[in-house]
């Protein structure tokens, strides 16, 4: 197995971002953070990629949190910005799926929360242990968690440092699917294949309208949605999609 901290594998239109430090539980340190950010940039620049799957090698997803360096760096903001990898994952413009093949805790859960969809192995556990350790999440945990599961579940999980089983995580809406043991990645691949058959630009715009729209007043969100929809008028994918529907055949989208 390669020693690179992150493996990028492209299979057709699906790209796999694989955290490859099982011995360190894929703890996000400076090197891993840099590798994830670099990979996300690469993915955004490759228009042939339609779906991203984030997962880990063996049965490890990602746990733990890097604490501040012993001597406080002169610019602590820079240090934290450098470490904020969930922010880069959230900026990936295609649909993203976290295949949670093992525990997703602390910073590891923040990475999963930055994906659009989460599929977890039956054995995986999810939660933030930070407050019980005197730490505080700083990679979107407090913001993305509450937007996904609602305010009260988010406060409950953060304040009590409670760790959820995958089944419980599904019940509170933290993940979208639970799979039997060892099957999270397979499930995610099937999901990704089905998403990759959708019109890629339309899917990217849908993602953008949802995430950016939630940050705006509703009337502004409606304007964003309408403008993105008019931008799609010029695509060949739109003609292809409508023609395939009217002539009752499967569409073939070029992403143009």
């Amino acid at each position: 197995m390669s020693k690179r901290p992150v493996l990028i594998e492209k299979k057709g239109t699906i790209v796999f971002l694989i955290l490859n430090r099982p011995k360190q539980s894929n703890l996000v340190d400076e090197e891993l953070a840099w590798a994830i950010k670099d990979s996300c940039r690469f993915i955004n620049e490759d228009s042939s990629i339609r779906v991203m799957i984030l997962t880990g090698t063996e049965t490890c997803f990602s746990t733990g949190r890097q604490t501040f360096p012993d001597s406080m760096p002169p610019y602590p903001d820079d240090w934290i910005n450098k470490m904020q990898t969930a922010a880069s994952i959230a900026k990936v413009n295609i649909p993203t799926i976290a295949a949670i093949n093992g525990d997703a805790l602390d910073h590891g859960l923040e990475l999963a929360l930055a994906c659009d969809l989460r599929v977890a192995d039956w054995n995986a556990r999810l939660g933030f242990r930070d407050l019980s350790r005197g730490l505080f999440p700083w990679d979107g945990g407090t913001q993305r968690l509450s937007r996904i599961v609602g305010r009260s579940t988010a406060l409950d999980l953060l304040l009590t440092s409670r760790i959820l089983t995958a089944k419980k995580a599904l019940a509170v809406g933290l993940i979208n699917h639970v799979t039997r043991q060892g099957n999270a990645l397979n499930y995610a691949v099937n999901l990704a294949s089905s998403i990759s058959e959708l019109a890629p630009i339309a899917m990217r715009y849908t993602k953008e309208a949802i995430h950016r729209g939630l940050d705006m007043p509703l009337d502004q969100g409606l304007k964003l949605e309408a403008d993105l929809s008019f931008l799609l008028h010029g695509t060949t994918d739109r003609s292809e999609g409508i023609d395939s529907f009217l002539t009752k055949r499967d569409p073939y989208f070029l992403g143009q």
């Binding site: 959708l198 019109a199 339309a202 849908t206 695509t235 999609g241 569409p251 989208f253």
Partner: peptide, 10 residues
């Protein structure tokens, strides 16, 4: 089904 038709919900 919009994304299957090259559209977004509008």
């Amino acid at each position: 089904p919009e994304a299957r038709l090259g559209l977004i919900a509008a």
